[in-house]
Write a protein that binds this DNA or RNA. Structure first.
Lengths: 187, 187
DNA sequence: TGCAAAGTAAACTGATCGGTACAACAAGCC
DNA sequence: GGCTTGTTGTACCGATCAGTTTACTTTGCA
């Protein structure tokens, strides 16, 4: 039966939630089919190269989201503090207050790592560089800026792992409050 | 053929490296067999409940390692600073300077998460509580101690994810230098 | 020397894996 | 109404999945 039902973007979005929840190896075609509401033939219609292409589309989507939401907030209007806090609010909503995992973090595991190392590095780099620019805007020195930018991404990822491991979103929420203080502190 | 060849502990140790590398879903019996050098029948001799029991044994081993190495270093001789740095050196060696992943972090992903939530929480808690005790020893106030303890674990996990994603151990190494300063800073 | 137990290899099971073939279907255009 | 194009369900493929069975070999012990 025809009539798109849902757009390709919507399909990728739903695929993302499955990979986010189960990682690459854990996301079977059956789960990807359930998660999208599409049969396997439809998935292969959108992604002729199968699961590998689905994960690639998801990584491209994640990268685009980092550019168009995360970095965009960092480059938006207002003081560095306001911009950083807008980014953190976007993360808070995307990660559901620490209850969701990070699709990038989950794709660093297992078979996906070698397969997507380039894309993963690129996505993390974009994120770090956006934060680095913000730090420079805030008057932080060049080398400190890079370190603080990496620290933010590092702490977001660590908070998601720890909150996942403890099954308690508290560390994630505390991290959200702590990051702005450290990031913008005088050197 | 009989004659243990390798001890059960040695088997668990080798299983750990496979789960550490591939996660739960990515660690097939074929890989677990290759990684241990044992045939499937031998693995099922040691672990009648199969992969689920293997991962459980690995988590027990990881928990024991946290108690007997990580926490033991924290409770050992010397100043809080020295003890913390001994723990970090143990982590540095275990994670191969940031090139290895954390088996706990990798088992938070996918099918393993629900299966082992209790064990994961317990392992992370033991680690955090060991650090909290050290902070109290160092004269840090009760509530700050808990936060700083969580921060250390959070930063170790985050550094491993970021170093994995960037395929560059630099963030992990920088984290090792940064943690002692923050952890023992005056309040 | 004999024998139970520990350990192992190889061949096997049914289920699920990722992936394919194909026919049926609806919408847009003529 | 035909025709093309895009989309879908169903049935299927070989490979691999986790797990089992069986028969064998070696060891420790009596």
């Amino acid at each position: 039966m025809p009539a798109p039902l849902i757009s390709r973007d919507e399909v990728v979005e739903r695929l993302l939630t499955v990979f986010q929840r189960l990682g690459y190896d854990g996301a079977s075609l059956a789960e990807l089919s359930r998660g999208t509401g599409l049969g396997k033939s439809s998935l292969y219609h959108y992604f002729p190269n199968g699961k590998e292409e689905m994960a690639l589309a998801v990584l491209r989507r994640a990268h685009a989201w980092i550019e168009q939401v995360v970095v965009a907030e960092l480059e938006g209007q207002g003081s560095p503090k306001e911009r950083l806090e807008r980014m953190l609010r976007a993360l808070d909503s995307f990660y559901a207050g620490g209850k969701n995992a990070c699709v990038l973090g989950n794709l660093v595991v297992g078979g996906a790592r070698q397969l997507y190392q380039r894309q993963l590095r690129s996505a993390f780099s974009t994120w770090v560089e956006g934060l680095e620019s913000l730090a420079l805007d805030a008057g932080i020195s060049r080398r400190t800026a890079r370190e603080r930018a990496e620290d933010v991404v590092l702490q977001v990822q660590g908070a998601l792992v720890l909150s996942g491991g403890l099954d308690d979103p508290t560390p994630f929420r505390r991290m959200l409050r702590k990051v702005p203080k450290e990031f913008l502190a005088p050197e």
